[in-house]
Amino acid sequence: MAHTAAVHDSPDAHASHDAHATNTGISNFKLGFWTFLASECLFFGTLISTYMVYKGSAIVGPYPADLFDILHTTLSTTILLFSSLAMVLALHYVHEAKRNVAIGWLFAVIAMGGAFLYLEFQSYLKYIGYGLTLGSSTFGSSYYVLTGTHKAHVAVGMIWMAILAWRIHQGKIPPSKSDQVEVAGLYWHFVDIIWIVIFTLVYLIP
């Protein structure tokens, strides 16, 4: 807590902006969002647990080995990874007050998110064609609900990015308000790391 003490050591440090100061120097929005992400860990943790618990319990096919096309998934995984890179660059340029570059990278994020969703829905259609549905087996149920929840997160993130791009375009997000972009970035990266885990546990580990 040395940090806390440092913030408040000077007697007037709090008097001037007592409604604004935070103990940690982190904005409430960002701290609250990290807390929310901790909560999301458990949310996805439960979904992933269920998938793992049900691994091998499907009594009728198709089974994972019949369906998964690792190269296809590798492509979408790589795209999502690079969208994270685009996201961090967008934030970087918001800090630098280079609005148009930032908007450009945000569009890149949206585009890559869209490509990811497109590829994933393509495989959904393929799986459905092979007879894997929500109700066909425990594998179907746990697979679709886990990856579907992840896709819903990606979709929400894309809408969020679009709104941010618009706000940056309007000039409403100067560098001093960059944590609006930073928090959106945290969300996007979090969705990315969830996919890192899903990619390994669901697709790669037999």
Binding site: I59, S141, V145
Partner: peptide
């Protein structure tokens, strides 16, 4: 999960399907 089972016919808790 329960909602999906009841509403959309998933089989999370359906023993006859291995749930």
């Amino acid at each position: 999960f329960l909602g999906f089972d009841r509403t959309f016919g998933s089989v999370f808790f359906e023993p006859a399907m291995g749930g």
